[in-house]
């Protein structure tokens, strides 16, 4: 199949993301890239685990974390992952409008998560004087969670760009793989967060 082909719901392939060679390359390439990202986060996790008790007299994880805030953030991100699944479901059925809608919901949920995270960081810095510079724990915490936050921000910009760019021209085999890998990326971010929630927050609160 060719990228520039005009398609209808009938001619649209079952796996639009892999229908062209370019699409298939993107698909495999992105999975490979996520492999690298996994190692990146694994390294950050290992660093955090090694330094989680290095408070240098400052605030400890037990004092800092508040389960309510983090739980809400987790729910927001988990839900956004689900809505992006809906979006891809509609993409496969060639329902462009519904796909855009669900990606829109995904972006809004992601944005809400990001705002909560910024609030959280701000809270730690001002209420607890807990900063990147205050202890090794501070450095490790902000680097790990901040790297994840940066990924979320990048994902939001990415999906938004895709939605605006393609708003008028609908779905084709050129942009279907792009949407697909963006949603893969979003799932990845979500999975990383599940680990952060467990390793950083839950284990941090238990001590």
């Amino acid at each position: 199949m060719h990228v520039e082909e005009k398609l209808t719901a009938e001619t649209f392939p079952e796996q639009p993301e892999k229908a062209t060679l370019e699409g298939k390359n993107k698909f495999i390439g992105f999975w490979v890239f996520l492999g690298g990202e996994t190692v990146l986060f694994a390294t950050l996790f290992a660093t955090f685990l090694a330094l989680r008790d290095s408070t240098a007299g400052g605030a400890s994880t037990q004092e800092l974390f508040d389960i309510k805030l983090v739980f809400v953030a987790t729910m927001l991100l988990l839900t956004s992952s689900l809505t992006s699944v809906y979006a891809i479901y509609h993409m496969k059925n060639f329902q462009f409008g519904k796909m855009q809608f669900w990606f829109g919901v995904t972006v809004l949920l992601g944005l809400a998560f990001l705002i909560l995270e910024i609030y959280e960081f701000n809270h730690y810095m001002h209420e607890f004087e807990f900063k990147l510079t205050s202890s090794a724990l501070g450095s490790a915490f902000y680097t790990l969670v901040g790297t994840h936050g940066a990924h979320v921000a990048f994902g939001l910009l990415w999906i938004t760009t895709l939605m605006i760019r393609n708003a008028k021209r609908g779905l084709n085999l050129y942009n279907a793989p792009k949407y697909y890998v963006a949603s893969l990326y979003w799932h990845f971010i979500d999975v990383v967060w599940v680990f952060i929630f467990t390793v950083v927050y839950l284990m941090g609160m238990v001590g």
Binding site: G36, V39, A136
Partner: peptide, 30 residues
């Protein structure tokens, strides 16, 4: 292998340029 390098030198960068304490034993670094 390259992502760990990226992280390793990023941590060094935080310590050298942005006041991080990953490797400063006085503030719990290692």
């Amino acid at each position: 292998a390259f992502p760990p390098l990226t992280v390793g030198i990023a941590l060094l960068m935080f310590d050298r340029l942005f006041g991080g304490n990953f490797f400063n034993p006085a503030l719990g670094g290692n």
